[in-house]
């Protein structure tokens, strides 16, 4: 199956729901997609381009949300998550605690999706930032299988959410008929022996490739894909992790700052005999060199060979 762009499938599904559900609004901060053209044409009275104004995007969405509408607020990931952070904090996280505010931010360009576009467009902070905020679900899908279920989840959940989408077309990991479980919030894609790689989003693809190469070398590693980064079913996740003795986390984000690695470290460190957690991601600096995703990963020590070598060294 050819790679798919998640945002288009997500928007197509939102567009379908808007036909029957008149309470759905779609707002954009002047950010498009091929699928959005259709939505805009079909629902000119429920689509609004607020312009390049992410702060106002979130405030307007909150006002509509407080009046009972379901809102999808769409923008480039680093800009909606960071430019509008205080609007998200107050109008969604804080107000979402006492009243229903069903505003779902769609941030496109997770991690290094916008690779050659440069460090202003890289998004290495958003998971940690959104994890900080109470009352917001953080949804980080790894492929397009999730899209319909994300829309269903947000319509039922009725709480603010941050949907972190990769900007590039990605192949499917899951079978097209797979049903992501939003109670679990994670999926153990393959089982291994000693080592478990825990990843999210694009890095789940890297994790699976790593597992495949290692398998050929006689090392069997498990791979867990976490898509509700902030709120997986902790009992189930602990039970799954309990089968392993070493964890490697992989994220396109800064490490040791509250991202995915913090979740796994907190689980491990709360046990009587903590198991080692090795976080793989970006160290405490921005990436200025121009290059595609593979090139930038290699620079950050996330090249395929380096990861394989590293995992062999800890096995």
């Amino acid at each position: 199956m050819k790679p798919e762009v998640m945002r288009d499938l997500l928007i197509e599904d939102i567009c379908l729901r808007m036909k029957d559900n008149k309470k759905i609004f779609f707002l954009s901060a002047d950010f498009g997609s091929p699928a959005l053209d259709q939505l805009r044409a079909d629902f000119p009275d429920r689509f609004f381009n607020v312009g390049i104004a992410e702060q106002n995007l979130v405030s307007i969405a909150a006002g509509l949300g407080l009046e009972g509408f379901t809102v999808y607020a769409y923008a480039i990931a680093p800009f909606i998550s960071m430019r509008a952070f205080e609007q998200i904090r107050i109008s969604l996280a804080l107000m979402g605690q006492t009243r229903e505010v069903n505003v779902n931010m769609i941030g496109v360009g997770a991690g290094l999706s916008y690779d050659v576009t440069g460090p202003t467009h890289h998004c290495l902070e958003d998971i940690a930032l959104m994890n900080l905020l109470p009352n917001i679900s953080v949804i980080s899908p790894s492929d397009a299988t999730f899209m319909k279920d994300i829309v269903s989840y947000t319509l039922v959940n009725k709480k603010p959410s941050y949907i972190r989408l990769d900007g590039k077309a990605l192949p499917r990991i899951y079978d097209q008929t797979a049903k992501p479980d939003f109670n679990d919030g994670f999926c153990q894609i393959c089982k291994g022996e000693k080592i478990c790689i825990v990843a999210t989003g694009y890095m789940t693809h890297v994790a699976l490739k790593t597992a495949e190469v290692l398998k050929n070398d006689g090392i069997s590693v498990g791979v867990i894909d976490i898509y509700l980064v902030k709120s997986p079913d902790m009992d189930k996740l602990k039970a799954s992790l309990n089968e392993y003795s070493i964890f490697v986390t992989m994220e396109e984000g800064f490490i040791r700052k509250g991202g995915l690695d913090a979740l796994i470290t907190s689980i491990s460190s709360a046990t009587p005999s903590p198991k080692p957690v090795y976080p793989l991601g970006f160290d405490d600096q921005y990436v200025f060199e121009v290059g595609d995703r593979k090139h930038l990963h290699a620079l950050a020590g996330l090249g395929e060979d380096r990861i394989i070598e590293f995992i062999k060294s800890i096995n």
Binding site: Q55, N56, S59, I60, G63, E86, S91
Partner: peptide
């Protein structure tokens, strides 16, 4: 909920639109 300044008009505009 207000206190941090500059948020009210955007929220109000969303409510007015609704």
């Amino acid at each position: 909920d207000t206190g941090s300044l500059g948020h009210g008009l955007g929220i109000g505009a969303g409510m007015a639109l609704a």
